[in-house]
Design a protein around this nucleic acid. Sequence first.
DNA 1: TAACATATCAAACACTTGTTTGAAAGTAAA
DNA 2: TTTACTTTCAAACAAGTGTTTGATATGTTA
Lengths: 211, 211
Amino acid sequence: MTELQHASTDCTQTRSRLLEAARVVFSQHGFQRATVREICALADANVAAVNYHFGSKEELFSQALNFNRLKALQAASIDPDINPEARLRLFVRDFMLILLDEQHASSQCRMMARELADPTPVLDKIVHEAIAPLHAFVGRLLGQIVIAPIEEATLKRYVYSLFGQCLFYRNSHPVLQRLNPDLSYDIAQIEAIAQHISDFTLAALNAKIPD
Amino acid sequence: MTELQHASTDCTQTRSRLLEAARVVFSQHGFQRATVREICALADANVAAVNYHFGSKEELFSQALNFNRLKALQAASIDPDINPEARLRLFVRDFMLILLDEQHASSQCRMMARELADPTPVLDKIVHEAIAPLHAFVGRLLGQIVIAPIEEATLKRYVYSLFGQCLFYRNSHPVLQRLNPDLSYDIAQIEAIAQHISDFTLAALNAKIPD
DNA sequence: TAACATATCAAACACTTGTTTGAAAGTAAA
DNA sequence: TTTACTTTCAAACAAGTGTTTGATATGTTA
């Protein structure tokens, strides 16, 4: 059986069930805490299935990663007919939906966010294929908003300030949950958060102009 | 031997060596990945020492926590003789030094920051004793800067925006390291980061006034 | 010194983890 | 059907983990 057949015929049912289960479990517990046994249980497969189909837990994680949604996000915020400020608002809104909306079936991206603070061997791939382009994209976007010429290093700090605000809601979620116990995000709340971040960031950027 | 003696006599040498080693190892690897064996090796003690002196790894972690530095930070930024904006700048500077300066012997605080995204049984204690007061403190500070009356929820989002920017440099450190491989922070760089965050935040807050 | 509590240690325990194995079941072509 | 190959499975493996144990040292007190 060739590679191509291996990837398309229905003998891959278990394989794709594993991938989907992996995304759920990894995004919930992170690479380290997620166990092969839990993934296999969710996929209704034998414990040995992961190593048979993927070779290792790490390779399963790597193949479960999917950056399509992040790429689509950038494509959607690139329309030249709308001004940069509005494009930023669109971007932040979609980004926060990816990060926070559990219904949004974007566990492929959420499983990524968990690993940023806790290096796994796959982090190099994540940074190279997803984060670096994303930072470059946001850098260009912010560069169009701040009209005055600014140094590359300064622009970088703006990018960090924006991502810092966004990622806080995901990274510090366990803390926020304890600070107000009835926390849960519906779409309206996520959009409100996104609007705050956009307002806050745009206000800071625009105030830079007079300098 | 009473409890009091137990805490003061020199028979506690091993005990305090364990506490110090725990702070180093926990702040480096986090609670989950840190191993009792590594802590004991660093403390030059037997593996059984942790359970003999503390009962469990978790209790060792709990006792190794120390919020004094965070409390001192708040006390230093409360001087009423300087205006709120300058107090904010002081706070952010000290906070970033705690978060980023490896020399600064503040591993007690850094070991805390690692756990925020990855709940351990001790997170409740951390949130209750350290983070909640810290958020409240920064909330009051920001409230003095934004003169116009704002809702409690809005103020909260300002606090999140500030902490998000600060914590980003710690939480996303593995990512930043890969984005520019020659990354390392000396005091001047940390102060530059702190200044950016303060500038960015104050610009955003001041721009809010006309609304 | 003798008796006693405390502290240290090597070894083992109990458990979880990712992974491997070898047999059984399923599938498709000859 | 027979043959060859793929997939599944229960069981075991190997390594790492926090913890416990029982003996041995150490220090204190009577």
